[in-house]
């Protein structure tokens, strides 16, 4: 199977600090790929490279098997790659619809087509069976953490996207809201999207993921099927970069 998204040999430095070393990573349609690693391992940086926020120093980027160049967030969005960032990046002073369409507003002539956007936003939220808010014209400032996460995810799937990447979507959520978001993540994959989930919580990872990729100090320690590994092995990979014959010493990134 061709991965929807594939990276090979990605290097990324900020000034003198090299954050990513020769990273390979794949995500497949219809699957949830968990991206794990300790704080500072480079997960967010890798995601930002995928999303065109940071240019990569070197390496190859394939989308649906084709080599592509990503120079800006627009390029990534045009391919159908959507990222829900750790800090969500929603505008508190705009409402839900305005946030979902930010930068890609529908218009008729030069006039915003509010009605179409509102209808589409409502439809998307409904298709995700999102249990949500009083009004989609509510300001994002007035939403709870889980609701904000939901809006950010709905924004990402509004665009017939093919790859959706979620950077620690449950980190700030309570138990019930986490369950809801994970359910939503699984549903996205079941709808045929390639989903990448960054998480620190092993229970979450094992609950929803099909594959697990482990970053260790900016290197890809291993990318394995979730069914092939145990909790303990993944924790070992995260903390030491290796576990048995998995990991960095033999360089195998399955």
């Amino acid at each position: 199977m061709t991965p929807a998204l594939e990276l090979r040999g990605i290097d990324k430095s900020f000034g003198p600090v090299q954050v990513l070393h020769d990273v390979a990573f794949s995500a497949y349609a219809g699957e949830v790929t968990a991206l794990v690693g300790d704080n500072g391992a480079g997960k967010s940086t890798l995601v930002k490279c995928v999303g065109g926020i940071h240019p990569i120093d070197s390496g190859e980027y394939f989308f649906d098997g084709r080599p592509v160049r990503i120079g800006s967030p627009r390029d990534a969005a045009e391919l159908g790659i959507e990222i829900v960032y750790q800090d969500l990046a929603l505008c508190d002073n705009l409402d839900i619809v305005q946030n979902m369409f930010l930068g890609r507003e529908h218009r008729r002539g030069i006039v915003l087509d509010e009605d179409t956007m509102e209808a589409m936003a409502a439809k998307t939220l409904e298709s995700l069976s999102v249990r949500t808010v009083k009004s989609i014209r509510q300001l994002v400032a007035s939403l709870s953490g889980g609701q904000r996460q939901t809006v950010a995810i709905a924004k990402a799937v509004l665009w017939n996207s093919k790859v959706v990447i979620l950077d620690e979507p449950t980190a700030a959520l309570g138990v019930a809201q986490t369950a809801q978001v994970l359910e939503l993540v699984r549903r996205l994959a079941d709808q045929g999207l390639a989903v990448v989930l960054i998480s620190h919580n092993m229970n979450d990872v094992f609950a929803v993921s099909d594959r697990i990729a482990t970053l260790y100090l900016g290197r890809m320690a291993a990318q394995v099927k979730t069914s092939d590994v145990t909790h303990a092995q993944v924790v070992e990979l995260i903390t030491s970069g290796r576990s048995g014959d998995l990991g960095l010493t033999n360089g195998a990134t399955v």
Binding site: A89, N93, G103, R104
Partner: peptide, 10 residues
């Protein structure tokens, strides 16, 4: 409202 969000929205 949020420069970073705007920038990421292209």
């Amino acid at each position: 409202g949020n420069v970073e969000a705007a920038r990421r929205a292209g």
